[in-house]
Write a protein that binds this DNA or RNA. Structure first.
Lengths: 203, 203
DNA sequence: CTCAAGGTAGACAGCCCTGTCTACTTCGGG
DNA sequence: CCCGAAGTAGACAGGGCTGTCTACCTTGAG
């Protein structure tokens, strides 16, 4: 199972200096470093100095690409959205691309050593009150996630309604896994999903 | 409906100086002020200076009662747990104290103007990585919540399993309400709950 | 009365944070 | 060849943060 949440982007250099990406542009190195640190340690508690040091760039270069930390936060959410959605859809495909595929995909996510919950939910709790742009990005992300789930549902039911409910169950499971109970999270998710109309898809 | 999430503690002085509690001890004023600010604006972004100013105490008094900000954070979670559980159980009672009571109770919570999500989920995202004590408190809170939900379920089913699933659905709904869709949150919650065994309780 | 507990007012040390600035280097396209 | 884009190194300003300190006041129980 070589697939990773980061689909090959940063799964090979977790804690070491992560500097073997010298061929990447400074802008890209900053963004990826910010992604790693923001996701793992939180946005507010990660100073730009640290990102600058670990990305191996200087302050001038940093501020040339991202005039303020807020710009970097927004870019981080955009980047996270892109790589997570790609990973998610890819993982769904490899499990049959139907409603029953969600549980194993979540399982895979929750048991990844770098799992730290949903970056968007975390960002919402941390910055939602002070950065409306963050709330907007969370909305976009969750809306697209619902669209993907709709595609897994059979046609003979109110897909929009059910996709919305399933997405909520996923968020509940993510929260639960975040405080250290991934097994119970999957278990509970399956319980909730059992009630979804036409569980056994005909497609 | 005079009940509030704060059950009379702080519902009558939202943004004004909230100083008509001069008869309370300094310790209590600090704790309540911290609760208001930590919940509304986040823990990390609320400085002790601000709590000290709004509680109307001095630094010496503050540090006499809470030797460090971390002590106050832990006390905040304990306080939040107590008042929220009391409110929750009271609200359940007034809606019939069965499984069907949860949705209107959540509705009441989500539409409260001061609603900003679950304080424990937010604290987890913000401090979980750096303060294990926070993770522990989240566990305690959610475990007790599950116990309460178990009490709403009929006896002819695996109450522990279902309570766990229902609690997850609640968390999913809370997250959804937090980014501004309380109506959809309740709607989705009801969808998920429909599948719970023996929906119509016999008690 | 006395004294300790708890309160007031506010200066200050030391740290980390964001963001700016000067001065120098490397390199590729016109 | 030359010039501009992008990079390097690191000092520095200004602010907010936690936590300490001195000095004085109030009140109630023994």
């Amino acid at each position: 199972m070589e697939r990773s949440v980061y689909h090959g982007v940063m799964d090979r250099h977790s804690n070491p200096a992560l500097m073997d990406q010298t061929k990447l542009s400074a802008r890209e190195r900053i963004l990826r470093t910010a992604h790693t640190l923001f996701y793992r340690e939180g946005i507010r508690s990660t100073g730009v100095d640290r990102i600058i040091a670990e990305a191996g760039v200087t302050k001038v270069t940093f501020y040339r690409h991202y005039p303020s930390k807020n710009d970097l936060i927004v870019a981080f959410l955009g980047y996270r959205h892109r790589i997570w959605m790609l990973w998610f859809q890819d993982a769904l495909q490899s499990h049959g691309n139907n409603l029953l595929a969600i549980a194993p995909v979540l399982q895979e996510w929750f048991t990844d050593p770098s799992f730290r919950g949903c970056a968007f939910i975390n960002a919402l709790g941390e910055m939602g009150g002070s950065m409306p742009e963050v709330v907007h990005r969370v909305n976009q992300h969750k809306a697209e996630l619902r669209k993907v789930i709709e595609g897994l549902l059979p046609e003979n039911c109110d897909r929009e309604d059910w996709a919305s409910a399933v997405a909520m169950a996923i968020d509940g499971a993510v929260i639960r896994a975040e405080w250290g109970e991934p097994t119970e999270a999957i278990h509970g998710f399956n319980h909730l999903i059992e009630g979804v109309c036409c569980l056994k898809p005909q497609t």
